[in-house]
């Protein structure tokens, strides 16, 4: 039961959604975009959020589309994770998405919602960091497409009223050897202790993106370089761990030390898996 009241809007185009947002904001309605709605609904119930207007993005056709066009795969931001798992257009994304929440909840949670949400794990973002992805945002000043990393540095940087329309990656990137692993405190369904997405680019270079280690997802060129440099796998892992930030998250999922231990194992597994050692 959500005790507060809000008005509900269901635009059918991104431009309409943006215009609505602006109008409602000008009216001091404190509008919020809503896709899967899981976070809006649960946080509004708890009083952590009190939008005066909810703008549902699920009736915007281009946001609900997964398609390969012009050599790029496009993932609409309002596509539920379940669809990315079932249709498996991009195996790495499917492997990561299939460990977010539980099966039923994945029919609700959307790609854009997972990236834009306040729940800080944003695991579905990880693969996009590793694949020359682009993100298209619609806002008061029109549409802008930018490299994913420019807009996402652990959290999305969006101006008020901007929404994520879609994400895309080169078709070839779906075929890079990749590795995904989620470690939790114990349960299969849980927030991550550490989630890792890794790819091996055609040059053999390894790139890794992380969730659960820091307050927000992160990746580091220095870490990737250490991991990709010459040496025994153990030495590379050790050097890579040396590039982890000195303070990792301590919470009810686990301590910083333990997270470091789990990272070490996952990195060894990732190397073994990707390089077939």
């Amino acid at each position: 039961m959500i005790p507060i009241d809000f008005s509900y809007w269901r635009p059918t185009s991104a431009e309409e959604a943006v215009a609505l947002y602006q109008r409602l904001a000008a009216d001091r309605q404190e509008p919020a975009y809503c896709a899967g709605g899981t976070e809006i609904v649960t946080r509004a119930r708890l009083g952590q959020l009190a939008p005066g207007a909810v703008i549902d993005l699920k009736a915007i056709p281009e946001m609900c589309r997964v398609a390969c066009e012009g050599g790029r795969w496009h993932f609409g931001a309002a596509v539920p994770l379940a669809q990315l798992v079932d249709d498996e257009p991009w195996p790495l994304l499917a492997r990561i998405a299939e460990r977010v929440a539980d099966h039923t909840s994945r029919a609700h949670i959307t790609l854009g919602g997972n990236l834009a949400g306040a729940i800080q794990y944003r695991e579905a973002a990880l693969p996009f960091w590793l694949a020359d992805a682009e993100i298209t945002v619609a806002g008061p000043h029109g549409r802008h497409t930018a490299p994913f990393a420019q807009r996402f540095g652990g959290a999305l940087s969006l101006d008020p009223g901007e929404l994520v329309l879609d994400l895309s990656i080169p078709e070839s990137a779906t075929r890079f050897p990749s590795y995904a692993q989620k470690a939790t405190r114990l349960d299969y369904v849980d927030y991550p202790l550490v989630t890792v997405a890794a790819v091996q680019s055609p040059g053999g270079h390894l790139r890794v993106a992380w969730s659960g280690l820091l307050p927000e997802p992160f990746r580091s060129d220095a870490l990737d370089a250490a991991l990709s440099a010459a040496g025994t796998p153990a030495a590379r892992v050790a050097r890579a761990l040396g590039e982890l930030p000195s303070t990792l998250v301590e919470d009810l999922h686990g301590t910083a030390d333990y997270r470091r231990f789990v990272c070490e194992q996952i990195l060894s597994d990732a190397i073994a898996d990707l390089e077939g050692t």
Partner: peptide, 26 residues
């Protein structure tokens, strides 16, 4: 009412969904 337990699960067009996470207005 938080999406965690599934006691509220219904079918929406044949697909199981958690009715505590859905707005009826949809």
């Amino acid at each position: 009412e938080n999406g965690d337990c599934g006691a509220c699960t219904v079918l929406v067009d044949g697909v199981p969904m958690k009715s505590c996470l859905l707005l009826a207005i949809e």
